[in-house]
């Protein structure tokens, strides 16, 4: 197997064969901000935070779904990219009701972390303040639509790793919502196996373990990576 060599931010680096630009960057210790991407499940290319500049390509490309190719020149950090990333984060904070100080995921939230890293200290857009619901009908978990950023990690992890496909997205545009089954209370879902993969996958405080108080909702991403790896490498086969 031959490695791919490419340039990231002016440094010549090598990446494992078949790696995406994001993976290539991570292998070489370069951080690219992400939100919808999660190791272990397919990439959606939806949050647009991981957009990078690639020489010779007029459009910005999402690092998570762009293959690293030989000789590619990638820029992951520029004034323009950071400006765009900041605006994307501002749009997310303005879209729903993200009240960090009273959120179960305060301090363990990827949206909050990305904002701090980016230096996003205030939101210039007008807050939409939609009137959204909280569903705590499930015996162990809850979903607070106020905190959802529609990254669809829950949809993908439930479909791809658990195979239950309890979650999906309903509606469209700004009216999109993640739902369980026929948009019925989660507790009445026929398909949910209560496996908690969606809870561990959620980047914010949208899906949470009941009983978590402010700042108590920590996510165990390693569990998802562990299952995905084991599956891929058939570690559990006899």
């Amino acid at each position: 197997m031959t490695v791919t060599t490419l340039t990231i931010n002016g440094e010549l680096v090598s990446a494992s064969p078949g790696a995406s630009v994001l993976e290539a960057a991570r292998e070489n210790g370069v951080e690219i901000p992400t939100l919808c991407e999660l190791e272990g499940i397919s990439s959606a290319g939806a949050c647009r935070l991981c957009l990078v500049e690639i020489s010779g390509t007029p459009r910005l490309q999402p690092a998570c779904v762009t293959a690293a190719t030989e000789g590619m020149e990638v820029q992951t950090d520029s004034e323009r990219l950071n400006r765009y990333r900041r605006m994307i984060l501002e749009l997310l904070f303005a879209e729903r009701n993200h009240i960090c100080p009273v959120c179960v995921a305060n301090g363990h939230c990827e949206l909050q972390s990305r904002a701090i890293e980016n230096g996003m200290d205030h939101v210039r857009f007008s807050y939409q303040h939609p009137d959204l619901s909280v569903d705590i009908t499930h015996e162990r978990f809850g979903i607070d639509q106020d905190r959802c950023i529609l990254c669809t990690r829950c949809v993908r992890v439930c479909d791809e790793l658990e195979g239950a496909h309890t979650w999906d997205v309903a509606g469209r545009g700004t009216k999109s919502r993640v739902i369980t089954d026929l948009n019925q209370p989660w507790g009445e879902s026929d398909t949910c196996t209560s496996c908690a993969k969606c809870v561990e996958a959620c980047p914010t405080g949208a899906i949470f373990r009941k009983g978590s108080s402010v700042g108590e909702m920590e996510h165990r991403r390693d569990r998802i990576r562990f299952i995905a790896d084991a599956r891929k490498k058939k570690e559990w086969s006899p």
Partner: peptide, 18 residues
Amino acid sequence: DAINPAAGQETAKTKDGE
């Protein structure tokens, strides 16, 4: 330093859950 909003104290580590 960079701030951990939950702790209300300065910590360098801000990456979530990793």
